[in-house]
């Protein structure tokens, strides 16, 4: 199989997991750029121009809360997962497990 085909499918598969990865990471309050770095290090390569609007959207949906921190050298908006976000993450993870089990059964 050509490498670009594999890469394309992997990227497609990972795209749907960015929300899970972000919700999981944000159990600790984190600001946008740091989250981007953390996700990249963990293998979730998401573009900044996708992640920043995504954080806003998740916040609007009540899945994240945010707070400006002005104590550091530069004011930063810290996001943290809300109770709703936490329960969404649990649901998504349960679905994830179920999908894995289903696929295994199909093999």
């Amino acid at each position: 199989m050509p490498d670009d085909v594999l890469a394309g499918h992997l990227q497609e598969l990972r795209r749907g997991t960015v929300v899970m990865a972000a919700l999981a990471t944000l159990s600790r309050p984190t600001y946008g750029y740091a989250l981007l770095e953390t996700l990249a290090d963990a293998g979730f390569a998401v573009d900044a121009n996708t992640l920043y609007p995504l954080l806003r959207r998740l916040e609007k949906q009540g899945l994240l809360t945010s707070e400006w921190n002005t104590e550091e050298s530069r004011p930063r908006k810290f996001y943290r997962v809300s109770p709703d976000g936490q329960s969404l993450l649990e649901s998504l993870l349960a679905e994830w497990q179920e999908l894995h089990a289903s696929i295994e059964k199909l093999r």
């Binding site: 600001y31 946008g32 750029y33 920043y52 930063r76």
Partner: peptide, 20 residues
Amino acid sequence: DQRADVADELRGSIDDRVEA
């Protein structure tokens, strides 16, 4: 109502990236 907040955050994110 969102503009200033998004602008401040985006500004900070750009500065973070520049620093990195």
